[in-house]
Simulated scan of single mutants.
Amino acid sequence: MSGPLASLKVLDFSTLLPGPFASLMLADMGAEVLRIESPTRMDLLRVLPPHDRGTSAGHAYLNRNKRSLALDLKQPEALEIVRALVTGYDIVLEQFRPGVMERLGLGYEALKAINPRLIYVSITGYGQTGPYKDRAGHDINYLALAGLASHTGRQGSGPLPLGVQLADVGGGSLHAVVGLLAAVIARQQSGVGQYLDVSMTDCSFSLNAMAGAGYLACGVEPGWEKHALNGGSFYDYYRSRDGRWMSVGSLEPAFMQQLCMALGRPELAAWGLDPERQPALKQALQVEFETRSFDELCVLFAELDACVEPVLSFAEAAEHPQLKARELVSQVPRGDGSTQAQLACPLKFSEGLPAPRHMGVAVGAHSDEVLAQLGLSAQRIAELRHAKVVG
Rank of each mutant, 00 (worst) to 15 (best):
E369D: 06
A6V: 14
G231F: 12
V389P: 02
P346H: 05
T129W: 02
Q75V: 08
G191H: 13
L106C: 07
R64Q: 03
T40G: 06
L259D: 01
T152W: 09
A186V: 10
L196C: 05
D28P: 02
G231C: 08
A306F: 05
Y142D: 02
Y238G: 12
A146N: 05
G337L: 01
S240K: 06
Q189C: 01
G147P: 06
G391C: 01
V220W: 09
I91R: 12
E225L: 11
M42T: 14
Q189I: 05
P50T: 06
K66N: 03
H51G: 01
L343H: 04
G212N: 06
Q278P: 00
N141Q: 03
L328W: 10
S2Q: 15
A27M: 11
G99V: 03
P161S: 08
D72I: 03
G243E: 08
P356G: 09
P222G: 08
C307N: 04
V287S: 11
Q75C: 01
L323M: 15
E288T: 02
Q257K: 15
G19Q: 05
A146Q: 10
E80F: 00
R326F: 06
M246R: 07
W271A: 08
T87E: 15
R53A: 14
M359C: 13
P76R: 03
I114D: 11
S190L: 11
M25F: 07
V82Y: 00
L216Q: 14
G352C: 11
G264W: 02
T291N: 15
R187H: 11
V164P: 00
G231H: 10
G335A: 04
M246G: 10
L93I: 13
E80Y: 00
Q194T: 14
A70P: 03
D242L: 13
G156H: 10
G219C: 09
Q373R: 14
A269E: 09
P266G: 04
M1A: 15
Y235W: 15
I81L: 11
Y237F: 15
V177D: 05
M200R: 09
R326K: 12
Y237M: 13
A110G: 04
L145C: 00
I36H: 10
L111C: 07
M42Q: 15
S377V: 12
N141A: 05
A27F: 11
S350K: 14
V332L: 06
V248I: 13
L148Q: 11
V370S: 04
L251M: 15
E267H: 06
P356M: 12
C307H: 08
A149R: 15
M29P: 03
C345N: 14
A228I: 15
I114M: 12
A269F: 01
S150G: 09
G214Y: 13
A378D: 08
L323H: 14
